[in-house]
Design a protein around this nucleic acid. Structure first.
Lengths: 217, 217
DNA sequence: CAACATCTTGTCCGATCGGACAAATAAATT
DNA sequence: AATTTATTTGTCCGATCGGACAAGATGTTG
């Protein structure tokens, strides 16, 4: 397919720019009002475009939301990276926790939309998503279990350990409203650093490991 | 107030029964569709009553949701009970974790609605709620800090420790859809028991404490 | 039983929703 | 320059929303 032969026309640039404007606006609107509560009118106003333009580029509200969900799931995919039984569990787990906290800080809206989707029964996620997630989870569980078998760490249920990491890290995205009331701070980054350090200390400690206080690269 | 003088008339019974039917239906509908997505028609059908009847008892959708939110917040209030610096942190924390997991199992819809409310910016929670929550949190933080000062447990940030307990326990309510895909089990109770045990082991262990594997009374 | 209050229910209303459509405009291709 | 394709935008539509209202049914109290 000779796609790169075609020059990047001005129209094509406009197209991608507007699609990006719209999907960003949709992320903000859906995060604040939910799928049903977010209207095409609100999204259009947030994107500074007429409502009909939104429909023109994405066909329907459902399609727009699906495109947004796809983008969000891709962020999650960047998982623990390549790990094996030979890896050091302390390093892998600490890096994973810090990466998840960092994602909560950088993409809080993504986490909010995903959590809302799950809470409401995941009506927009298909079987393929669950199949892939299950496959990914089983791989990680097997590796963690091998660490336990090799006595590299305490015997804890690997699935619940991963659920714990997911929930406690995404909490700093999903519950940002509550955190704003309970931890009024002028420096958000400090809060996230404290959170990551505390989570690493407790979770690694609870697994019989020792945090090296790594930073996220 | 001579309320108990008045006999419990049949009309009054009907009133409380219908109010209860409606608010239960509202909980189920709002949990599955969100505040905006849940319609009075859906709630009425779930309660087996005409839509106008719902409005009659609660005045408006907003009032109904507020009544529901109030009921939900009351469940949360049952916190760590009476504790002090003299209490054993291992016992207190373990009981608190198990109680929170138990609440996730018994009132999953309550947690889902509350989390959705927070995600969307808590537009229906007033300053009084935040004031009381802050007050409650500061008390617990002071006690945990005293345990740390007395070297009864490791030095961890008390606030982040509590956030971790909240998020990892409520995860088993909010993410029930995901858990249904990743942990297909014929016995839900087993999953919750495993979850509580793992959470207690890791969190207590991470605090330098030892779980006694208590049960929730 | 008469009066009164409470509850039930069908119907109607303005507002808003997602989105279909056409006409006007801009850009790309020949 | 002519033609075709892509984009913009205003307008219109049926469906659904929350909720107001009135009339009838039922229950309570003198």
């Amino acid at each position: 397919m000779p796609d790169q032969v075609k020059p990047v026309t001005r129209a094509a640039q406009t197209r991608t720019r507007n699609q990006s404007l719209i999907i960003d606006a949709a992320e903000s609107v859906f995060a604040r009002h939910g799928y049903t509560g977010g209207s095409l009118k609100m999204i259009a106003e947030a994107a500074n475009l007429p409502k009909a333009n939104v429909v023109y580029y994405f066909g329907s509200k459902e399609n727009l939301y699906q495109a947004l969900l796809t983008r969000i799931v891709k962020i999650w995919e960047l998982g623990l990276g390549d790990i094996s039984s030979d890896s050091d569990p302390a390093v892998v787990l600490e890096q994973y926790i810090r990466k998840k906290v960092s994602q909560s800080r950088r993409y809080p809206l993504a986490s909010k939309i995903f959590t809302s989707e799950i809470i409401q029964g995941a009506p927009h996620l298909d079987e393929i998503f669950w199949k892939e997630l299950k496959h990914w989870l089983n791989n990680q569980v097997a590796i963690i279990q091998s660490w336990i078998d090799l006595e590299k760490m305490n015997s804890v249920d690997p699935k619940h350990l991963l659920f714990m990491i997911w929930s406690s890290t995404q909490h700093y995205a999903d519950y940002s409203t509550q955190l704003g009331h309970l931890m009024p701070s002028e420096n958000d980054e400090l809060v996230f650093d404290d959170a990551a350090n505390t989570l690493c200390n407790i979770i690694l400690g609870g697994c019989g490991l020792k945090s090296a206080n790594l930073s996220v690269h």
